[in-house]
Write a protein that binds this DNA or RNA. Structure first.
Lengths: 243, 243
DNA sequence: GTTCCCACATACTGTGAGTACGTACTGAGA
DNA sequence: TCTCAGTACGTACTCACAGTATGTGGGAAC
C-alpha cells in the first residue's frame, strides 16, 4: 500500500570516479545496497507479519524496487527468508559468544550463555524468524543445518566444557544429544519468557530452573558419578553400527 | 495409512426409518461423516506435504466433496488445521497417559513418560503437524494454549510429582517453568531422534541424557538440597505482584 | 564512441484461498 | 401426503500473490 513511485536506489548524479583498484565498482555497490535493502525490509516485515503474512510485493515496495530486482538477487521467497534467517542467526551467535568471553569456569560460562540466550530469544525478530517460522518454512532438517553453524555451535562448546568439567567423557553423538536437549529447553523457555507478562521475572525463573538442573549435575560431578551411557535394547534394529 | 478408497459418505437409498429418540438423524450423520472425512484427508495431506503445501482443492478432492462443504464445516484453512491438530494432540496425550498407568514412583513415571513421548514424537503426523507446522500456522500463543490441554498437562503432572518427591515446594509459575523446559527439551530431542538414521539408538541416547539429568536432581533430593528459587534483580520492573 | 551485459523494470500467467449464491434433500408440521 | 423451512452442500466467481518471460537503461571495458 502507499506505493511511492519515487526514485529507486540512491540516484546520485555519478561523478566520474576512476575505478580505483581494490574498490568495488559503482554497479556492484548499487547491487549490494539493493540486496541489503531487500533483506532489511524483509526482516522487518517477516518479524511483524510472519512469513506467510508477508507478500513479495510489500517487500519490494518497502525496498523501493520491483519484483524483477528481488528475483535477480534471490531464487524466490524462501531464499529471501533464508538470507534473513542467516543474518539473524549469526548475529545471535555473536551476541552469545561475546557474553561468554568474561567467564572462565565452565559452570558459570553455561549460566552466562543461558543469560545471553534468554536476552536474544526475547528479541521479536529472533523469536518469529528463527523459532516460530524457521522450522516450518525451511523444514526441520535445513533449519537445524543452519542453526548448527552459529548458536548451536556455541552451545555445543559450552556443553562440551560442562561435560569435561564433570570428568565425563562422552562421544560426539552423546554430546550432540545433550546440546540438543539444552537447546530445545532454552528455546522453549525463551519463548515462554518472551510471551510472559513480566519477562524479567520469567527469565529469573528460567535461570533458577536451569541453574537447579546444573547444580544437580555438579553434584554428580563432585561425587564422581559415572557419565551417561545409553543402554541399547535392540527391539527391531539388531545391528547398532555406524557413528 | 493405506486409506482405502472406498465410499466415504454412505449414499444409501434412504429407507424410511422412523426417527428413533436418541439416535442422530440421517442428515446429522451424513454431516458428521463428511466432516470426519475432511479431517482425515487433511491430516494425511498436511502430514505429507505440510500446511502450505496442501491446497484446499486437494483436500476436498480427497474427501470427494467441494469447497462449499469445507467452508460449511470450517471457517477456513486454519480452522481445518486446528481440527487436525486437536485430534493429533489429544491422541498423543492419551498415548502418554496410558503409558504412565503402570508406574507409581515419580522418577520412573518420568522416565516412562519420556519413553512414551519419544514414541509419539517419532510419528510423522505428530512431528509435522504439532511440532513443525503448529507454532507457525497457529501462532505460538494459540499453539501453547492447545498444547496445555493434553500433552503439556500430562507433563505438568509428571513434573509436579517429581518436584514433590524431591520435597521441593514451588509455586505454579515455577512448576510451569520446569515443565516448559522439559517439554522443550523433549520436543527438540524427539525431533532429532526422528530425523536420526538409527532412531532406536538415538532414543536410547536421549533417555540416557535425560535420565542423567534426573539422576542429578535425585542426588539433590537425597542430600536435602533447597529447591529452586528465582533471585529477582529488579532492572526496570520494580513491582513484582500478581502471577 | 561503441558495444556488452548487468541490474533491474514491466507485464503477464497460474494457482489457491475465500465468497456469493444457487439447489437438492431432509425432517417437521398440517 | 403435501407444503415449507433450513441444512448441507455444489457452482461459479473474485482477488491476492508467487513466479516467469521479456524488455531496457546505464555503467564499464575496449
Amino acid at each position: 500500500m502507499t506505493k511511492t513511485p519515487g526514485k529507486l536506489i540512491p540516484k546520485v548524479p555519478s561523478p566520474k570516479v576512476p575505478s580505483v583498484p581494490g574498490a568495488v565498482s559503482r554497479r556492484a555497490h548499487y547491487s549490494a545496497t539493493t540486496k541489503r535493502a531487500l533483506i532489511d525490509v524483509a526482516e522487518e516485515l517477516f518479524t511483524a507479519n510472519g512469513y506467510a503474512g508477508t507478500s513479495l510485493d510489500s517487500i519490494v515496495a518497502g525496498a523501493r524496487v520491483t519484483k524483477g530486482a528481488l528475483y535477480h538477487h534471490f531464487s524466490g521467497k524462501r531464499a529471501v527468508f533464508e538470507a534473513v534467517f542467516d543474518r539473524v542467526e549469526s548475529q545471535a551467535g555473536q551476541t552469545i559468544t561475546q557474553a561468554l568471553k568474561r567467564q572462565r569456569d565452565p559452570w558459570s560460562r553455561a549460566m552466562a550463555g543461558l543469560e545471553a540466550f534468554l536476552e536474544v530469544v526475547q528479541q521479536p525478530t529472533y523469536r518469529r524468524i528463527v523459532i516460530q517460522d524457521g522450522p516450518s518454512v525451511m523444514g526441520y532438517e535445513r533449519f537445524r543445518e543452519l542453526e548448527e553453524r552459529s548458536t548451536f555451535a556455541t552451545m555445543t562448546d559450552i556443553v562440551r566444557a560442562l561435560l569435561k568439567a564433570g570428568d565425563w567423557d562422552v562421544d560426539e553423538a552423546m554430546l550432540k544429544t545433550f546440546t540438543t536437549i539444552f537447546f530445545g529447553a532454552m528455546s522453549s523457555a525463551g519463548e515462554s519468557v518472551a510471551t510472559s507478562d513480566d519477562t524479567a521475572q520469567a527469565a529469573a525463573r528460567v535461570e533458577a530452573a536451569i541453574g537447579f538442573l546444573l547444580a544437580g549435575l555438579q553434584g554428580l560431578a563432585d561425587r564422581g558419578a559415572a557419565g551417561p551411557s545409553p543402554h541399547v535394547d535392540d527391539e527391531d534394529e539388531p545391528e547398532a553400527a555406524g557413528d
